[in-house]
Simulated scan of single mutants.
Amino acid sequence: MKPSLNTTEQFQQLDKMDRQVLRLLQENSRISSAELARQVNLSAPGLQKRLRKLEQKGVIDGYVTLINRQALGLDLLCFAQVSLAHHQPECISHFCDRVQGLPEVLECHHLVGEFDYLLKFVVVDRQHLEKLLREKISPIPGVDKIRTSIVLNEVKVSTSLPLD
C-alpha cells in the first residue's frame, strides 16, 4: 500500500539533489546507478540511500519501460467521456471494476462536471474501437452516455512531472 502523501509538504521536502536525481531518472530510468551518482556528484551508497528514501516516501512510484503503441499496431488513441445513469456506490464500483479489466484502457479518471469518467484507450483500428464500445463499455450496467474522440495528432506527450 502506498504511503499517504500530503502533496504540498512532500513537494517542499524535496531538496535540490532529490529534484536533480528525479529529473535525470525521468529522462532515462535505465541510467546506471554509477552514472547517476556521477552526474549528481554523490557516492554510489549515498545515491542508493537517497533513492530508497524517495521510494519509501512514495515519491518514486516505480520504474517502467515506455513502449511505442504504434509499433505494436495500436494505431488509434482515443478518449471517451462516460456518464452513468445512477450514482449509487455499487454502480460506481461495478463500472470501475469492469474498466480495470479492459486492457485497452490506459487511464480512467473520475470527474466532476457533465461526464462522470474520462477514459484514455488504444485500439488497432475503427473496427476494434466499435467492438470495444459496443461489446465491452456500453453493456456495463449503469452506462448512460458515451462521447468518444479519436486523436488525430499527439501535440505533446510527456511522462515527466515539473520539478521546479
Rank of each mutant, 00 (worst) to 15 (best):
M1N: 09
K2P: 10
K2A: 15
P3T: 13
P3I: 14
N6I: 11
T7M: 07
E9L: 09
E9T: 09
Q12I: 06
L14V: 01
D15M: 06
D15P: 05
K16W: 02
M17E: 11
M17Q: 13
M17G: 08
D18L: 05
R19M: 05
R19Q: 07
Q20A: 15
V21I: 14
R23H: 12
R23E: 14
R23A: 14
L24F: 10
L25Y: 00
Q26F: 00
E27R: 09
N28R: 10
S29E: 06
R30C: 14
I31G: 03
S32F: 02
S32Y: 06
S32H: 11
S33I: 02
A34H: 05
A37M: 08
R38G: 02
Q39Y: 01
N41K: 06
N41V: 08
A44C: 00
G46V: 11
G46E: 10
R52M: 14
L54D: 06
L54H: 11
L54W: 06
Q56M: 08
K57P: 07
G58H: 00
G58S: 04
V59H: 01
V59T: 08
I60A: 00
D61N: 00
D61M: 04
D61P: 00
G62C: 00
G62N: 05
V64P: 05
N68D: 15
R69N: 10
R69V: 11
Q70C: 05
Q70E: 10
L72M: 11
G73A: 08
L74E: 14
C78T: 03
C78H: 07
V82D: 00
V82S: 01
L84G: 01
H87I: 06
P89D: 01
E90T: 00
C91A: 04
C91M: 09
I92M: 06
H94F: 07
H94R: 15
H94K: 13
F95C: 05
C96I: 15
D97N: 14
R98I: 09
G101Q: 13
G101K: 10
L106A: 12
L106I: 10
C108T: 15
C108S: 15
C108H: 08
H109S: 06
H110K: 08
H110G: 06
V112P: 00
G113T: 07
E114H: 02
F115Y: 15
L119F: 04
F121P: 06
F121G: 05
V123F: 00
V124F: 12
H128N: 06
H128T: 05
H128Q: 04
L129N: 02
E130L: 04
L133N: 07
K136L: 13
S138V: 03
I140W: 12
I140Y: 13
P141C: 03
P141T: 02
P141A: 12
G142F: 02
G142P: 04
G142T: 02
R147E: 09
T148M: 03
T148R: 11
S149T: 13
S149E: 14
L152G: 10
V155F: 02
S158D: 14
S158V: 06
L163A: 13
